[in-house]
Amino acid sequence: MAKKSSSYVTTLLLAPMAIWMTALLILPILVVLVYSFGELAEMGGYKPAFTLAQYANLPARLTAFKNTLVLAPAGTLAAFLIAYPLAYYLARTVEPRRRMILLTLVIVPFWTSFLIRTYAWMFILGGRGIPALLEFIGIEGVRLLNTPTAVLIGIVYGYLPLMVFPIFVSLEKVDESLLEASNDLGASPVRTFLQVTLPLSLPGVATACMIVFILLMGEFLIPALLGGGKVFFIGNALVDLFLQSRNWPFGSAVAITLVVVMLVIVSLYMRMIFKPGKTQDVSMI
């Protein structure tokens, strides 16, 4: 009896969450799914139909998919390579009193709009920013803005805090005595890092990379602003399809495909990283 009533309570408590998820996540995806089988109306928009034509047309956005599938992992990797040493420094090197200040500094940029910060980068990378400074010291003809490099810089900058925090938390959880134990057993600091610190921080790394990767798959602002519109991601394709050509059925098919591709990649990734039994002791944060 008691058990039954408690399960009612659970249901009741979970109801708002379930309704929220249904209304804001599942329903929109269903709408998009239905649209993806429709036809483009004469004046733009959606005309009810059941056709696979939109999916058949997917190769038309193959380049965008390819660009995204190259840049999302590249951006994730670049952000990781910069975030890990930073997180390591924050978690293991800096004294605790200064740690809070530095952590705050990592978050501070989040207090202003992402767009404004990206615009700031347009000026920094533009002809009168870093290239002008380089010219000042004699290196001429460097172009940064509106190049894939600029997009990568923007991505690393924008996603760095998202990458730093999960890694920081997992590094901070690594017990100091484990490092001493490794040292004591004959492992040099470098080997200790490779054999103890790194593996134990992997759950944080995996989480951080996944968050950043998923968000990068849908990125469109950074390529538009720092890539000068010349770097075309699937996110940009979606913006154009919905807001410019108003081809909602095709946009929907592209969106559904993106979701599916993402689900496949993420589930493969999860299976690879979080092997059952292997890492039960190191939980995701």
Partner: peptide, 11 residues
């Protein structure tokens, strides 16, 4: 050394 809280490598 045998550590007070043992410090086994959890991974």
């Amino acid at each position: 050394m045998v550590f007070q809280h043992y410090a086994p490598f959890p991974h």
